[in-house]
Every structure is written in C-alpha cells, then in structure tokens.
C-alpha cells in the first residue's frame, strides 16, 4: 500500500514538521516499503495474545510529594537555554491573533 503525498503532508502536519515538496515525494517513496514490510505481522494469529507495552511489570510507582531542594532549578537556570525570554518568562509564539 503506497503512502500518498496527501498522507505524508497530513503526517507532517500532525507532527508539526514543515516539509519541502521534494521531501514529501522522498518520504512517500521511502516509507511505503517500510510500512509494507510490517504486513508480515498479519501472518500471526494474535487473537488470544495480550499486549505488552513495557517489560518491568511495575504498576503505579509513587513517591512522597515532597520538594527536594537539590533537584530544583533556579529561575535563572531554567531560563538559561531559552532563545527568547521576557521579564523572567519564556516567550512563546502567539497562538491568538488580534482581529479588531
């Protein structure tokens, strides 16, 4: 089953990736055989098989709700790697636009 260009564009949108038109062609060509390869899994009857999402068997690992001061970043440290900050805050791209 070939991945269409529209599907690749849709995946890029879901993944918040910007692709050039060349990349769209390229990824459609490259991902199609990979996805086709996965069809071998249909050879296996898994109707009575449980799903595995992790291998530790651990369930609900909790810790006490206490602040460990040695593990807290100062505001200055937390902001130190941001490209844009303002008055001690991260600057994020605007989501809403002013209409009036």
């Amino acid at each position: 089953m070939a991945l269409s260009h529209d599907e690749v564009l849709h995946l890029a949108k879901l993944s918040k990736l910007t692709l050039s038109s060349e990349e769209v062609l390229h990824f459609a060509d490259q991902l199609t055989p990979v996805v086709d390869y996965f069809r071998e899994l249909n050879e296996i009857d898994t109707s009575n098989v449980p799903e595995t999402s992790q291998t530790t068997g651990l369930v609900d690992v909790l810790r006490t709700d206490e602040v460990d001061a040695s593990w807290v970043l100062s505001q200055e440290e937390a902001l130190s790697q941001a490209l844009k900050t303002h008055n001690g805050y991260f600057v994020v791209p605007a989501i809403f636009t002013r209409t009036s």
Partner: peptide, 22 residues
C-alpha cells in the same frame, strides 16, 4: 521554546521516524 532550536532543525532520519511513528 525552553531550549534548543525549532523543529525545522530536525534531520532527515528524525523526520522519517517521527512521521512513521505518527
């Protein structure tokens, strides 16, 4: 936003895997 460059800086294989996973 908090660190690093934006998503345009992802290389080809990372983009491929992000899309395959999606």
């Amino acid at each position: 936003i908090r660190f690093g460059n934006n998503r345009d800086s992802f290389g080809e294989e990372a983009k491929r895997r992000i899309m395959l996973g999606t």
